[in-house]
């Protein structure tokens, strides 16, 4: 077996087998910086050694080239942003994406890099409703972990096409029952996405991940 075949075979085995997870994973932004050549050779060596002993770190080191390829195939290496690109589609699918842009518009300009969630970060919210849970539309209560004292929460509920179903802003409680009328159009079993943006006591805004449940 030549080197290329051996690499391909062993790469496949590594992907299909999980290594042990000793210690904390290396944060994604640090992995990216190292693999983009923004760190020293010693940092590269450290990252490789961590990857061999931590499953999540290894997965991310392995995923980066595959995701770069996905981006290349999707938009090409010379992509340039088109200011109105999302809005000019004209198709039904594009309309859904436009709603997605509206959904996020209030946060435009507030940050210039994707938010990174770190393990143990007190501001990283966790859902307290099981992912994928089927919630009765008459008692559609969403709950999340508490932020620092004095935090306020903005909840957005949307369909998978990013059509906003309901928003509730400035909440002090860490749970909220979505009004039944907001969910009336949905078929039983339909997926609903939700997210919570926290306004911290110092005024910073921290978006949560996006979570999903279904309605019944």
């Amino acid at each position: 077996m030549n080197d290329e075949l051996l690499v391909a075979r062993l790469r496949d085995v590594l992907a299909r087998s999980t290594c042990s997870s000793n210690g904390e994973p290396v944060p994604a932004d640090e992995i990216l910086a190292v693999l983009r050549g923004e760190r020293s050779r010693e940092d590269v060596e450290r990252l490789v050694d961590r990857a061999l002993g931590n499953a999540e770190t290894e997965e991310l080191v392995r995923l980066l080239p595959a995701l770069e390829k996905a981006v290349d195939e999707a938009v090409g290496t010379s992509a340039r942003p088109r200011r109105a690109g999302w809005i000019l589609g004209g198709l039904a699918a594009a309309a859904a994406i436009v709603v997605g842009v509206v959904l996020i518009a209030p946060r435009v300009g507030e940050m210039t890099a994707p938010v990174e969630y770190r393990e143990g970060d007190a501001t990283a919210l966790r859902p307290l409703v099981e992912r994928g849970a089927a919630l009765d539309r008459d008692h559609f209560t969403l709950a999340w972990s508490e932020g620092p004292e004095g935090s306020r929460y903005d909840l957005t509920v949307a369909t998978v096409e990013l059509r906003v179903l309901h928003e509730a802003k400035g909440l002090e409680a860490t749970e909220y029952t979505v009004p039944r009328e907001a969910l009336e159009d949905l078929a039983s079993g339909e997926t609903v996405l939700w997210r919570v943006d926290v306004t911290l006591p110092d005024g910073r805004h921290v978006p949560s991940g996006t979570f999903r449940v279904s309605v019944r």
């Binding site: 981006v71 992509a79 942003p81 210039t112 990174e116």
Partner: peptide, 23 residues
């Protein structure tokens, strides 16, 4: 959407966005 407003180079930014989102 943020990149469109801030003029960040889109390809490298998009890679970063995809990678951190998947992570």
């Amino acid at each position: 959407n943020r990149a469109e407003r801030s003029g960040v180079p889109p390809h490298s930014y998009l890679v970063k966005a995809v990678f951190t989102a998947v992570a």
